[in-house]
Structure formats: C-alpha cells, structure tokens
Simulated assay, not measured.
Amino acid sequence: MIPDFLVTHSGGFHADELLSSVVLTRLFPQAKIKRSRAPEWIAPGPDRIVYDVGGFYDAEKRIFDHHQRGAPVRDDGQPYSSFGLIWKHYGRQYLAASNVPEAHIAVVHASFDAKFVLPVDLMDNGALSPLGPLAGLMLPSLLETLKPDFDNSDPDAETTAFHNALAIARSFVEAGIARSAAKLRAETIVQQAIAATGQGRVLELPMGMPFRPAIVKAGADHLLFVVHPRDKDWCLTTIRRSDEGFEARADLPAAWAGLTNGELEAASGITGASFCHNGRFVAAAKTRDAALAMAELAVAEALGN
C-alpha cells in the first residue's frame, strides 16, 4: 500500500532519519513528511511509514524504530539505526528506482550497506566514536551542523532546516550509489581488457576508471601498469598492491621522477613524454604511442631487463 505520510520525530534531527527520508521520498514522492511525537502520529497505520520513532520495529506494520529495549541488530550483532532498517527493507527498491541494473542490485545494496549505511548506524548508536581533528567532518556530524541555533525563535526553523538538510543528504546518497554502480560497470570493461591483454604487463583501458578491484578479482597478478587516454593526453599509472597504503606493484623509473616535457623526453628517450610525478606513481604522455613506450620501459626496468 502506498503511504500518504512518512512519519518521523519532530525536534532535533540526526543523520539516520534524514537518510531514511532520502530513500523513502524517492520511492513515495507523493507522501508528505510528518515530523511529530504525538501518539496518534507515531503509531502504525495503513496510511503511513513510521521511522526512528514509535517504540518498536515491525516491518509488516511499517514501523522502524531502534531506540527500544531489544532493538534489532544485524546477524553479526551490530546495531541498526532507522537508516539501516529502512535500507534493509527498501534499499533494493530504491536502487531499482535509481536505474541500477537488476543484475547489480544485490551487490550495490550490500556494498552501500557496508560502506555507507553501517557507519551511520554505528555512530547513531554510540558504537563508533571517531576521534581526532576529522571527527567533525564525518557525514552525520556535518548534517547535524545544519540544525537551527538554540535561540532561533522561528517556529518553522526546525522544519525548514530538516528539509534543507534533506536535500544535502540526498546528494550524498545519490553520489554514493552512482559511484558503486559505476565501479561495477568499470569492472566489466576492465575484465574485457584483461582478457585482451593476455600475459602482457601493461593494461590498456579506453578511459580512466576504477581498475584495481577487477584486476584483483581476475587474479591478474602479472599486470604492472595501466595506460588510458585522458582529456588531451594519455596517462600511465601504477597498480597499488593493496587497498591500504600506496605501495605499487612496480614504480615508474627513478630517473623520471619530477621531470616534465623536454627533460622527461631526454631522460626516457621517448618523444611525447610530458610528465612524471615525483612519487613515481603516475606519468603522462602526449600520444598513445608515447604512453605505451613509457610503459614498456617501466616494465623492463621493473623486471630488471
């Protein structure tokens, strides 16, 4: 049954009901958000979905609170916030409505839950407390800075601030979903390129894209460098050994570090070589042939040939 109302609590808002509202308003755009703590509103009913308020969790009755004793937890015991519960029950529908291909929905749903939803759930439940100077830059903290000041006497201030924050929260969810879906599209392209490369050491791609996850998944341990076109030139980049840190399978030649244009051409012997980062993890060339020539030289040095 399509709801007429999306009911959450009034007063100060937090990331979990904001992000829940992002999902629900996409699925039910005709429904009105009602922010209230009145018993007649926060009770379940056929005309509404209630979340982050109400005192219990019952998906069949469409009420999704997590503040009560015996609140729901994941299979591994980690707590849900209202966002996690809404994502669990409505996330797949949201992805379909966002034009994520059906074959990718399960993977994107799980990935977004692990990387985006779970941290919000943990912070909301006090199970994750970021420390240090970056703590205030976590998304839940940033969204809460959009609350009205304590001495704002405008009776509509909370509602106005909530809807302003909702628009910002929506942009982060949509961007996160788009990035997850894009990685899966990239994986298909990279897998095809790996097959075409065979046992070669240099992977050529048709454009810049995330490539390491597909390389790891394919077990293509022989690959050392990636070449692809950019806007007006070509890029040569290394492949990191792991998700953590910056150690590469092979670095670009030390003699190229920090050089550009004529100096790099002289050091490499390749006409069209235009740039090498001082960190030796990325270089550029004016043409495809120059980029591939740089890559082959880098392979030869890395292999000691």
Rank of each mutant, 00 (worst) to 15 (best):
S36N: 12
Y90H: 07
E17N: 08
H14Q: 12
F28V: 02
Q78E: 12
S81Y: 08
I49Y: 11
K61V: 09
V23M: 04
A43W: 14
K61G: 05
D75F: 12
A96V: 08
R62N: 10
G91D: 00
L27I: 04
L85Q: 00
K34F: 01
S20I: 03
F13P: 01
G91R: 10
R62S: 11
I42F: 13
G45S: 10
V23E: 00
R74Y: 09
F13K: 03
R35L: 09
A59H: 14
I63A: 08
T25G: 06
I42P: 05
I33V: 15
S98L: 01
F64Q: 02
P79A: 06
W41E: 09
H14N: 06
L95Q: 02
R26Y: 11
G12L: 07
I49P: 05
A43G: 02
A43H: 14
G70S: 10
G12M: 07
E40I: 03
P72W: 03
V23T: 03
E60R: 10
I86A: 13
P39G: 11
L19V: 02
P46S: 12
A59T: 07
A96G: 06
P39N: 11
S98P: 10
E17T: 00
S21C: 13
K34C: 08
R26M: 02
G91M: 03
R62I: 10
G77C: 08
L95F: 12
P29N: 05
K61Q: 15
P46Y: 09
Y94H: 08
P44C: 04
P46M: 13
R69D: 15
L19P: 01
L24C: 13
K34R: 15
A71Q: 03
I49E: 13
A31V: 09
V53D: 03
K61S: 09
G70V: 14
H66L: 00
R35W: 13
G45F: 08
G70C: 13
D58S: 08
D47L: 05
Q93W: 06
E40L: 14
I86P: 03
R35H: 10
R69P: 05
K34H: 14
K61M: 13
H89Q: 07
A15C: 14
